[in-house]
């Protein structure tokens, strides 16, 4: 057994990341003209239900057939390669848009989801969550994470399919309908985030 090192603490992204982190094409995992293209969008809200205008979101997901990409090129997209990673800063109304594909199940029978990290001014450490697709009711019912959540909180992780095929996923950092945020076993127990 190797000795565990203590992880470096996180800090807030602050307000001034705009020139540094978002990049051209960051929100387009595929081109809008791709026949598989799906819009994933929503709004980030604070504890008073007000939109947060200075938040940055990242998604990381499998391809439509469930393949996890290990191809580089997320920062300088070639327009052909699916890298699975996207980054976007919300607009002045707290709204974000990604263009992506519906992730496929990476293992048979598992409910596919998109992994998401949330950063914001005022948020002292990043938050993790999952965005599940709403369609496969049986797989959702079997999903161990969803099953471990109380009724009423489960649906905060399931995107809504809009009539035009878009996925709608709002984030509520606090208060009514607060989104479920996740910790993983490698995050130290007892730590607040």
């Amino acid at each position: 057994m190797s000795e565990q090192l203590v992880p470096t603490p996180g800090q807030t992204i602050g307000p001034f990341y705009g020139y540094a982190l978002p990049y051209e094409g960051g929100e387009h995992l595929v081109d809008r003209s791709d026949p598989r293209a799906v819009r994933l969008h929503g709004t980030v809200y604070d504890g008073h239900g007000e939109p947060i205008p200075d938040s940055m979101l990242e998604i990381w997901q499998a391809d439509a057939d469930g393949t996890v990409s290990q191809e580089p090129g997320s920062l300088l997209r070639d327009g052909y390669t699916f890298t699975g990673f996207g980054r976007v800063a919300v607009d002045n109304a707290g709204h974000y848009d990604f263009t992506t594909v519906n992730p496929g199940a990476s293992e048979a029978g598992k409910a596919p989801f998109i992994a998401m990290t949330v950063f914001a001014r005022g948020l002292l450490n990043r938050l993790f969550t999952r965005i599940y697709l709403p369609e496969d009711g049986e797989a959702l019912a079997r999903d161990p994470l969803l099953a471990s959540l109380p009724e009423g909180r489960r649906e905060t992780l399931i995107a809504e399919r809009e009539p035009d095929g878009s996925l709608r996923f709002d984030l509520r950092l606090q208060g009514d309908g607060e989104t479920v945020f996740l910790s993983y076993p490698n995050h130290r127990p007892g730590d607040p985030a």
Binding site: T12, D46, G47, H48, E50, I52, A120, R121, G122, L123, L124, L127, F128, R130, P144, L145, S148, L149, R153, L173, Q174, G175, E178, T179, V180, F181, L182, S183, Y184, P185, H187, A193
Partner: peptide, 14 residues
């Protein structure tokens, strides 16, 4: 940070 932190515990996920 006052209005921008979750008030519920982070939920354990494998």
């Amino acid at each position: 940070s006052i209005l921008r932190h979750p008030t519920k515990d982070l939920h354990h996920a494998d």
